[in-house]
């Protein structure tokens, strides 16, 4: 029985609930059990710009909490994935750093000894559940739907730490999209950054990065963008809408989360998939 401590991070519960609901819906049907650890805190990603030790402590606390429950962690956000993997890597290889961190964590009677693993949703689906097992659950495969799969940055790189897929030519997302019957198209900018890390601190640069990706996706013939990261999805959905309301030249390229795409092809109704919560409408995409 595949069982994971589900790591939601800070954004999903309040700004992207559909990522949680759609993930739970598909994972339940695929026999993956999820445990909620209410004490989980911020993965530390936004704190990295400010202070290293603070970032490491925040990240490590989550690892220690999961280790207490003897569970591997599954993240939905790729920034959370990158953060937790970094902390995990450091604490597994650097004993003195681990001692330092555990000295703080022991105030809560927890510690991290490097006994658990961090996975991202896509890895769990591809490697633990498996493409064939997923294929068996596809009830309404898409016909003629073209998807631009967006990998994002923090799950792919730095590859020595995150070990997610081949950083230069990954294929995990294409496999997962194709099993739904949709066609994952090739597009030049598929491995580029969505721009989210600079939103709020350098908006012009951030949104221009986003637009470049959207334009490339559109030019490459995509019907939809597909994401597997909280920040990326918010950037391509909420922020794209914000950009459109200012500039409004090109038609929008709607973005949906992978579990939403998968869920539809599995015959899961739109409500638990939270399609209506996407800001740029996802029109009925069925077979």
């Amino acid at each position: 029985m595949m069982k994971y401590a589900l790591f939601l991070g800070c954004q999903i519960p309040i700004r992207l609930q559909q990522y949680e609901t759609s993930s739970r819906a598909v994972l339940e049907r695929l026999g993956v059990e999820l445990m909620d650890i209410g004490e989980f805190n911020c993965c530390g990603y936004p704190l990295r710009n400010i202070d290293f030790k603070t970032f490491l402590l925040a990240s490590a606390r989550n690892l220690a909490l999961a280790e207490t429950k003897k569970l591997n962690v599954m993240t939905l956000c790729q920034c959370c994935y990158g953060s937790l993997k970094k902390a995990d890597f450091l604490l597994k290889e650097n004993l003195s750093l681990r001692k330092e961190v555990n000295a703080v964590l022991q105030q809560e009677d927890i510690s991290y000894e490097g006994k658990i693993e961090i996975k991202h949703l896509l890895s769990v689906l591809d490697q633990e559940v498996g493409i064939e097992a997923i294929r068996k659950k596809i009830e309404k495969p898409f016909q003629g739907l073209k998807i631009a799969a967006h990998y994002g940055c923090h799950a792919l790189r730095p590859s020595q730490i995150v070990r997610f897929d081949d950083p230069g030519n990954p294929s995990i997302f294409e496999r997962l999209v194709n099993v739904t019957g949709a066609k994952s198209i090739g597009w030049l900018m598929r491995l580029e950054c969505c721009g989210a890390p600079l939103l709020g601190s350098h908006d012009e640069l951030s949104t221009e990065m986003t637009l470049k990706k959207l334009n490339n996706g559109r030019e490459s013939g995509a019907n939809y963008l597909c994401t597997a990261c909280t920040y990326c999805q918010i950037q391509f959905d909420t922020v794209q809408q914000m950009i459109l309301s200012r500039q409004g030249s090109n038609p929008p390229l709607p973005s949906l989360l992978y579990p939403q795409l998968l869920g539809l092809s599995m015959g899961i109704p739109p409500e638990p998939l939270g399609l209506k919560m996407n800001k740029i409408p996802i029109r009925e995409i069925g077979s």
């Binding site: 704190l47 400010i50 939103l199 951030s206 909420t238």
Partner: peptide
């Protein structure tokens, strides 16, 4: 406030339209 130069500002970026008071860029 130096911590504005971090993804903690993401939320502020999302709320930009609502930020009625003050100058958005000034703290940055």
């Amino acid at each position: 406030e130096l911590s504005v130069l971090s993804p903690l500002s993401f939320y502020r970026g999302l709320m930009k339209a609502e930020a009625a008071q003050g100058d958005y860029e000034k703290p940055l």
